[in-house]
């Protein structure tokens, strides 16, 4: 599963990314996780299965949805603030399976 994390300048999602990579290393499946700033997401966007937004950028959801045809969601504030990697993986999975269901 490839997850792209987007925040204002790629820092806060940066630390989340580290936390998630740590968590992912416990699992067997393959993960690719990247954090980038909102300005850069179009470079990477299409290479990922799902996009997760930092809660502070929730207002960007619509703009990105219109731009890129991959599942996208906003990370709940508290999960984001404590780096709750498990919950965020779960969110990513849900988004992907929901998107598949729609197709």
């Amino acid at each position: 599963m490839r997850i792209l994390l987007i925040c204002a300048s790629g820092m806060s999602t940066g630390i989340l990314m580290r936390k998630m990579v740590q968590e992912a290393s416990k699992c067997t499946s393959d993960f690719e996780i990247k954090a980038c700033s909102f300005q850069d997401y179009e470079f990477y966007g299409n290479d990922f299965d799902v996009i997760l937004l930092g809660p502070q950028l929730s207002y960007k959801l619509k703009v990105i949805e219109e731009n890129i045809q991959i599942p996208i969601g906003v990370i709940p504030g508290y999960d984001f603030a404590i780096g709750n990697a498990k919950a965020i993986f779960k969110l990513a999975e849900e988004l992907i399976s929901k998107a598949r269901g729609q197709k």
Partner: peptide, 17 residues
């Protein structure tokens, strides 16, 4: 929103770092 505030909270902390 509360979520946005939390996001901002982490954002500023990271900026300082």
């Amino acid at each position: 929103s509360r979520d946005q505030e939390l996001g901002l909270f982490i954002h500023i902390a990271c900026s300082i770092n």
